[in-house]
Design a protein around this nucleic acid. Structure first.
Lengths: 134, 134
DNA sequence: ACATATGTATCATTAATATAATACAGCAAT
DNA sequence: ATTGCTGTATTATATTAATGATACATATGT
């Protein structure tokens, strides 16, 4: 039942970004990267809600919106799976565009903090290792 | 009257992060970096509100909360200035701690997108140049 | 004195987000 | 058939964020 998949979700309740959006964005990333493939099962609404300690309807909202954009498919009585969408691509350019906003935000903050270029790059390089997937 | 200072504010209304928090965080960064020094004048509530196209009370809320944490001082009839706080430091370590959340977020997203390390680092390096302060 | 600038208090209103407690239709396995 | 899973609809409530329209005390410059 995709029992370990909830571990892929990281929620920052204090960030200000709505929880359902955080979930949507993460699933979107895992799909266009290929980590999640067509047919893969997602954690159930109640599992994810319990794991993340949020309301089930918050998870359902994220799933429903992703279904509306053909990222997920609802299988009645079973749960949600990654949609079989033949038009889906995994272009490097597309993935880079998804990442850009976060990089721009980090770069802007770094410059506002007057941090030396090499210090930032070294730290970021380390964090890329530390927060590796799987 | 600090007329060009509003240009230091970047607001992303669609980010989900409350506007008043975005403003607070930016001022905090500009202060601990030293870009803004004790006594420097901030744009007036109405100037900033007009420039950012938000409600004046939203700016006032950010200013008031920054006054409560001794980052700003209110000068009656004049406006807000950077507080004269002798305890203020500009440690590199402190500035790095301020930046870390944004770097961690970017690193997490990059890995969820399965982007090659070198590609990310090169792009980030370019963005650090592009989004330079001043 | 007067006009103009400052931040802020006050009121009402709107929108978005999240929670809580139920309830229901659909499917699978026993 | 019953049990136990799915996702979701419903209703109500609370909180937070932002806007709009005034209004006020305070200070500055003329």
């Amino acid at each position: 039942m995709g029992s370990q998949i909830p571990l892929l979700f990281n929620i920052k309740p204090s960030s200000g970004v709505p929880i359902y959006k955080q979930i949507m964005e993460q699933i979107n990333r895992l799909v266009i990267s290929g980590f999640l493939k067509a047919g893969d099962e997602l954690p159930s609404v109640r599992q994810a809600a319990s794991y993340l300690e949020v309301n089930p309807m918050t998870i359902s909202k994220a799933y429903s919106l992703l279904e509306a954009t053909s990222v997920l498919e609802r299988v009645r009585g079973k749960g949600m799976i990654i949609a079989h969408d033949r038009r889906r691509t995994h272009d490097l350019d597309k993935r880079i565009e998804f990442l850009k906003p976060a990089l721009i935000e980090a770069a802007t903050q770094a410059n506002q903090l007057a941090l030396p270029r090499e210090t930032i790059l070294k730290l970021f390089s380390e964090l890329l290792e530390e927060y590796t997937h799987e």
